[in-house]
Nucleic acid binder design. Structure first.
Lengths: 358, 358
DNA sequence: GTTAGCACTCATTTCATCCGAGTGCTAACA
DNA sequence: TGTTAGCACTCGGATGAAATGAGTGCTAAC
């Protein structure tokens, strides 16, 4: 069976109505709600067809219809295809965002937490934001300082001024001289290199050079490797978990508990996001926005939810993700808009703060 | 009316039973549950008295009794007074904790998050852990490094090797020489000082010394001040928020939502903890453990909860808090034990890692 | 192809009834 | 005087029957 223009309009009307109310919608409602000027009986016939097509379904006889996952899918695809251009009327709102984002934030950490909050309160769903994943980190420079006789403070500065520090415990005492020499040695050898570029031959050359301090050099190199690698571990910020209580279909005790737990634990989310980051590279769908309806996402505790994700891009392979988790009857339009704008905002805010403003 | 030994035993029996079941408990149950060998009728008489004393109450006629807040209070006070000594039989459990805590943790942040997790999963309630609040931070040393022509990396090391870094943007370019000189100047002037000790005269002397770089010195001193002050902002880690769904009296949609929201937002908790840290200095109650039953705590969304908190002490005025939030029918004994042991564990773990092991 | 009409379905609401856990009180007992 | 048995009473919760009404599918007419 072909899906006619009229059928789609009816489907859309059903979905729109259901998004608002969360209640199954009947033929009479549609008959009035649309400008199709059709009687409820006609609508019923069409609905019967739509049901046969698998786009809507009845919770039980004598109830109205609700959209099926396929129905949502058709609706979302259609929406994404038609209205991908019209983002301008939200300009003011965006300005607010920008000031909110840049206002009094001095750490990326806080910034991202704020983004999550913003997104959650804007949409009334739960939100997720990840730190950017740095695909190829380069060492900008490294600095060793003695803080105590047997403790070495290691400050490691990566590309884009990402700074990390570790304290290294030594089993022997070092003179200031030696520390200075090591600083020089390490910086000369390693600066500007990514983790992959610090290959074995380089390292063994360094070791040889270090002489009796070989052990310490080893420890330091290990530390650097750990730090760079550690940046691969996404950090996840969530917000608005309690928004799910606004949607009865998600707020029964067990479902809500599982869902909030997933948001709290973050590990599962992290995996999901990593996948999403990787997979998106290939399947560039609609402006880099992906919509997972119901069981289209792989997280078991979220089978009753829809998830909308986007990646933000900071250039040079640094990409993170932002996402929304809500009920299947989500206001996809609004969410997609919000995410879309935030995606670009975030890209520019984070990039601006690293480079001179244009 | 005086509360006799027997009355207390009955009260205790009621509470114990209610902690387990969450159901109002009747006279017949008590008659069998205790070894008092009294008929249900006698118990009823006593219960009537206990109710008159305000220690228990009836949800409605023809229901059993449940403990009132006052009842819990009496029970908790009694418990704290009698059994404060017997902590030894938990020794094994503690060992597990210790390894769990020290295992693969390299940052205090992660450690504290783990503590929260541990506490939550041990008790089946929600847990809160704060970072230690440093009452008097001293500057150990400061180090400036040029990372880009107009960007200065400032590494600030405080007492106990707390390390913070900031990037300072400059409006002029500095030569390596000048940076070196500034390093020396700042360190000579400020090392070992607390924020209070960096008084105005000291700062203006520094400024004078800086000559044309006065502006930069100002910025740097501001940054230092900010960092030290910033350490006052407790960070709060929570875990096990979803445990509250295990207790029907807390898991109705609105209550749960509000409660979890409070845990998620953290701001309210932070205030509460700061208060608790301050107030505890004066009122050293039972081993530094405080129990707030029902509306004894000031947080509106937690009026149906009990909160048990303790402070952990790292010496030299560094104190943080750990806490448990659960239903009023909380297993106070177990919670108090868990918190008590964790309190000391935490003190020693965090202290060990800063000092040579004994 | 559209619509009016009608019989039918079934979740939800309402209402009355029943059940039983638990109480308070009284009277008898040790 | 304290304890206990007995009994009438209360009231929340469970059970089930009946009423309600939103919504459908089908048929027949337009």
């Amino acid at each position: 069976m072909e899906i006619s223009e009229r059928k789609y309009k009816i489907l859309e009307a059903i979905i729109r109505n259901y998004l608002e109310t969360g209640e199954p919608v009947g033929s009479r409602t549609i008959s009035k709600y649309t400008d199709l000027n059709l009687s409820s009986a006609t609508i019923r016939n069409e609905m019967s067809d739509l049901e046969e097509l698998g786009l809507i379904l009845q919770p039980h006889t004598s109830a109205g219809r609700i959209p099926s996952d396929q129905g949502y899918r058709l609706y979302v695809d259609h929406m994404m295809a038609t209205r991908s251009m019209e983002l301008d009327e939200r300009a003011k709102e965006l300005e607010d965002m920008k000031t909110f984002l840049t206002d009094k934030v001095d750490k990326v950490e806080e910034l991202l937490q704020n983004v999550a909050k913003l997104l959650a309160s804007n949409t009334n769903y739960a939100s997720v934001v990840s730190t950017p994943k740095l695909s190829t980190n380069k060492l900008k420079f490294i600095q060793l300082t003695k803080v105590e006789p047997t403790k070495l403070l290691t400050v490691i500065v990566l590309d884009r001024n990402v700074i990390r520090n570790r304290i290294i415990e030594l089993d022997q005492e070092l003179s200031d001289d030696v520390v200075l020499k090591m600083n020089l040695m390490l910086n000369t050898a390693l600066n500007g290199l990514s983790l992959e570029q610090m290959n074995l031959s380089l390292v063994s050359a360094l070791r040889a050079q270090a002489g009796e301090y070989e052990g310490i050099i080893n420890t330091i190199i290990d530390t650097i490797a750990q730090v760079i690698a550690g940046e691969d571990n996404l950090k996840i910020y969530t917000s608005g978990a309690t928004n799910i209580f606004k949607y009865p279909e998600l707020s029964d005790s067990t479902k809500a508990s599982e869902l909030i737990n997933t948001l709290e634990e973050k590990q599962v989310l992290s995996n999901f996001i990593v996948n999403s980051l990787d997979s998106e590279e290939s399947s560039e769908t609609h402006d880099g926005i992906q919509v997972y309806i119901g069981n289209e996402n792989s997280i078991s505790t979220m089978q009753d939810c829809s998830v909308v994700t986007a990646t933000y891009d900071l250039g040079e392979g640094m990409r993170g993700a932002i996402g929304i988790i809500g009920p299947k009857r989500m206001d996809y339009e609004k969410v997609v808009d919000s995410i879309k704008s935030l995606k670009s905002q975030l890209g520019s805010v984070l990039t601006d703060s690293k480079e001179p403003p244009k």
